[in-house]
Design a protein around this nucleic acid. Structure first.
Lengths: 207, 207, 207, 207
DNA sequence: CATGAATGAGGGTTCATTCAT
DNA sequence: GATGAATGAACCCTCATTCAT
């Protein structure tokens, strides 16, 4: 971990290595990177439903180049998502090493917020029924829960924050700043917000 | 406020009056209502990108009927949005009359959550650059800020909640439980969530 | 039977009636006919793989008009095929009423040859694995086997031809015989086949 | 005739000699052979419209290698066709030496049937208007007419078959007969055609 | 020479919008 | 007014062909 680009699945575009283990040509890798960067930018601006041509144009490559590396439109969405999840997860240990536990937590949540902020339209895609998106929530969870989990633990260990919030729930809550959730969960998060409101109120109570 | 259907713009569909002030024929009004109801349901299920044809089918009317009353597809989105904003705003005084201030606030936030929950894809539309959607945020704000504002004021007056949260911010925060937000604001709400976390922490403080 | 256009399936395009039994608008029917005619001509010239756009252009309609009536490209192929099968089958009783049995048989085989001659590329389509084409052989068989069967029976009853050839086999043989060749030659080969039939018939002659 | 690989055009791939007369490198020749074999197999399975990439994969070579030797896709089709025509023509003298004239004829027609059976989609290609395919019928005729012609002559000389059928016509008839049908049936129809041939022959029998 | 990455024209299909009926 | 047929721009994707490595 540590580089901007890497994937969990060996051979995924962006890894610098093909599935066969053979070295990917330098120019191909450059294109993959350009496409992912362009897709990330375009998705952020126009949502994940943006035309592939728009991404190709911004990346400065032909349509076929995108389809070579991402045979389905959805593969591109998945790849961008995973790359950003990876980058975000990688930030956790870095911040933990640099800051006090609760500062590291707060900073990571900001970092994570930045990640989430570009996900316009992804929620709709996730609920579109397209099976290509089914693994995404699991990917999200598998990478970010441990990352946030250790930050939360450290902060709770110092007594800076309460200890009864599961990493997954907090991830979802912040994610929901962009992604629609099922009502139950939304409700819980509204309650948490209301807790936040009551904190510091004249009639509120501490501990 | 008060009727099921009304708009801000004189002569908008749903008012019961045409721009010329002439009375809209009863069957035309029935069609408008059917279309709006159908659109609301379809948007909730398939998102705001659902084909117009699907709405026409569910409303039991022809395509032309929809386009007669809503010349652009976006007009339909706008109308549904406004109608739901109105209904939601109208709920505030009703709840205020029935419940204690902080209970009324909590209930209204739930009501509002239900409203927001059906907005899949709307955020993407709002940021699509289509000028038809430009007035929507203002409409949202003009109607819901006063509604929530009075609930917040009443609750703060009793000391049940802190007094330093602006209605608009809270609206956005809860909205974002489903819809993507711009970064600044998301950040503030993350901070609020963190406050919520700290509330009840061993090392937390009250007041 | 008897009209140029009719289908086996109620509500199929070309019937003049929609599936709901409601009358199809006259202009729509005109377009359906134009599309079928254009498709028939284009298929004959360019094969069944011809672009839909080419058919639309020749029919003088928009692309959407074709897709309205034939939601899949293959539906158009199927419809043209069925229409021609129908027309061909309908010719059998007409010829039987006008000519002596073996003359009627020979003429019908020529008629059938003309039908087959326009099927360039259809065989490949039939073997393409596309499930849309699966019912075609059955349709072909259900309509043409009886048509040819009665002609064969009548001719065999007069002793003009041998009686041991099944209609289906003869249909296939002639179909295969005619596909890629020019008409003159196909005709000669049909004649040869007919010679083959006559060889060994009770009323046949040797040398 | 006689070698496995040879073409009519000097310097065509498969000849073992380049246009300049220089010896083709052994590995290049190996590649050409592999490509032709792969193309033959792929055309038989997927038709002549199969993607070039599929052929490259099966041949175990890169796309560029194919295009080096066959600059146009159609060149590959032509080469495969010619190679198979050659192999088929070469079988005639071999069979003539081994069997009685009419047995040799019948066996060769079966051999020829096997050749034709792999030509799915070729007929459509031949009529596609692509000038690359224009010489094919002539090639077919120049090689197979003499091959079949001598077999027919020998058989007619013994009185086993009638003498009034031109080789070219019989080639076409059998070719067309075999394309789309399953083998068993095609074989029966070939038999019927042969019956047709025998009908009217000096040594034939009636009833 | 061989490879396979890149290109982009072209094909099927959808759907907002117009307009004849 | 209401209907839904017609239109065609725009989308996703494939694949023949070129050319950098």
């Amino acid at each position: 971990m540590g580089e901007i680009e890497h994937g969990d699945t060996p051979g995924a575009p962006g890894t610098g290595r093909s599935a066969s283990g053979r070295r990917v040509r330098a120019d191909a890798q450059r294109n993959i990177t350009a496409v992912l960067d362009a897709a990330k930018a375009v998705f952020a601006v126009s949502g994940v439903d943006a035309p592939v041509r728009e991404i190709a144009a911004r990346a400065g490559v032909g349509l076929g180049t995108i389809y070579r590396h991402f045979p389905q439109r959805s593969d591109l969405v998945v790849a961008v998502f995973q790359q950003e999840v990876d980058a975000c997860a990688d930030a956790a240990p870095v911040l933990a090493a640099e800051y006090e536990p609760d500062a590291a937590l707060a900073r990571w949540l900001r970092r994570y917020t930045g990640f989430i902020a570009t996900k316009r339209g992804l929620a709709a895609a996730l609920h579109s029924g397209d099976p290509a998106f089914e693994p995404l929530p699991a990917y999200f969870q598998q990478h970010l829960v441990p990352a946030l989990g250790s930050l939360l633990e450290s902060a709770a260990a110092t007594g800076a924050i309460r200890a009864d919030i599961a990493p997954y729930e907090l991830l979802q809550a912040v994610a929901n700043l962009c992604l629609p959730a099922d009502s139950d969960h939304a409700q819980r998060m509204v309650d948490l917000l209301i807790d936040g409101l009551r904190y510091g109120a004249p009639g509120g109570r501490a501990t």
